[in-house]
Design a protein around this nucleic acid. Structure first.
Lengths: 231, 231
DNA sequence: ATGCTAATACTCGATCTCGAGTAATCGAGA
DNA sequence: TCTCGATTACTCGAGATCGAGTATTAGCAT
């Protein structure tokens, strides 16, 4: 079993919502949207009902009553239990106090960056920056608005944090794109050559790595010493 | 159907590995570890075999041969197909060129930060920093080592990127913890008071929000104007 | 009165995921 | 030569996941 009996982050948001007052599932989902929590927690409305019943099965919440309005489907109102409050508290403590290994998709992309021709890589990185930088500008503007409306910062620290990460992403990607473009990134000359040999003469990168001196020149003799597993 | 027929990032790494030469699944997994790709892509060895058969079903890879050594279980060696190369290329293009909405667990935690007493929040943030800052130091040291071994940077940009994100996290969390501790975070006085009322007199936060002037003083009269849904 | 769009409130099942479990072999030391 | 832990190589199924689909109703313009 996973460490948490119900591990989906949406379950955390459900517990947080029911901690305030009893609600039925759909009400939870609209409330999360109204408060913008769906910006910080992935809310998938198809998962909501299975998560609610899983929480109930594990005793974290319980059905309080079933109401029907007109011809609408029945709605079950749930309330949080003591075990549920404890679980929420423990979960919140963990989320804040313990870093967990995250895998950013760009990390995966960068790990295989030499799989793209250098110029194409620069193009794509700039394409990404166009989107990211617009988002940064929008978030910055929104923060200024909230600040001038005197909406206390404590209520939007999660958004500040996200902005900090986006800025770091932007700064790093800007620098990386520049360094590839100007050949200042160590290894990029070699990357450029390998792609040239491949495109002009059809020599696969694997082939070239077997004889670096022949394909890249004397200054790459050291490569023969690097175990292939490290590359 | 999902946009990608096989959506798990591990499938991306499998395609990348088989793009180099044919291999059997277990060999892929050891190779990914040897090259440290498991640091940038989440590799779950229980998923590996289902992902490989899914890739085969969709025509991205195909079985080349089945070999048996001694009494060991049979090993099927797979090779990538043209469709598989195209898929890998398309995927890599997407990972590098298109930002995708990520949900950092700390964002979820921060979204419910007022659910913790302020002093406890500071404690937890500092506990997180202790771990994060050690990791930053270790990564920095490792980068220095790789640089002095003249291992070209192009082969570890993914790690540089991760370090940039970690540094941003650390900087933001440092600042936030300081601001809560010194009451410089707008709203923290109010947060502190609400918890004091709750712990001393058992008045729930919901109750207090209904009459902010009574519980927090005249300067919080504006709160009555803020629709409860925004909080 | 009528038609239309948006919002409400869910259901379903095909696919995915992952950790625990298994079983064989290798290799270092006693 | 024997043991025992580490490594190799893989299997399995319970539970999670998610998007597409459905059916109803409210609100609003015509």
């Amino acid at each position: 079993m996973a460490r948490r009996k119900v591990a989906n982050p949406l379950a955390f948001a459900v517990l947080g919502s029911l901690g305030e007052r009893p609600m039925h599932p759909y009400e939870i989902s609209t409330m999360l949207r109204a408060r913008g929590k769906d910006q910080s927690i992935k809310v998938n409305y198809g998962s909501l009902y299975s998560i609610v019943s899983s929480l109930e099965k594990h005793g974290f919440i319980e059905a309080q009553e079933t109401v029907r309005e007109g011809n609408r489907p029945e709605r079950t109102v749930y309330r949080i239990t003591d075990a549920g409050r404890a679980e929420f508290d423990d979960w919140l403590t963990e989320l804040v106090g313990t870093p967990s290994r995250e895998f950013h998709p760009l990390e995966a992309g960068l790990a295989y960056l030499p799989g793209l021709p250098p110029d194409r890589a620069v193009e794509l990185l700039e394409q990404r920056l166009a989107v990211v930088d617009v988002e940064i500008a929008e978030m910055t503007a929104m923060h200024e608005q909230m600040a001038s409306a005197e909406f206390p910062r404590i209520f939007w620290v999660e958004s500040e944090f996200r902005l900090a990460l986006l800025r770091a992403e932007s700064a790093y990607v800007h620098r990386l794109a520049d360094e590839i473009r100007t050949d200042k990134l160590d290894g990029s000359a070699f990357w450029r050559m390998a792609w040239k040999h491949y495109l002009d003469e059809g020599i696969s990168p694997g082939e070239q790595l077997k004889d670096p001196v022949k394909y890249f020149g004397q200054e790459f003799a050291w490569m023969q010493a690097v175990p292939p597993e490290a590359r």
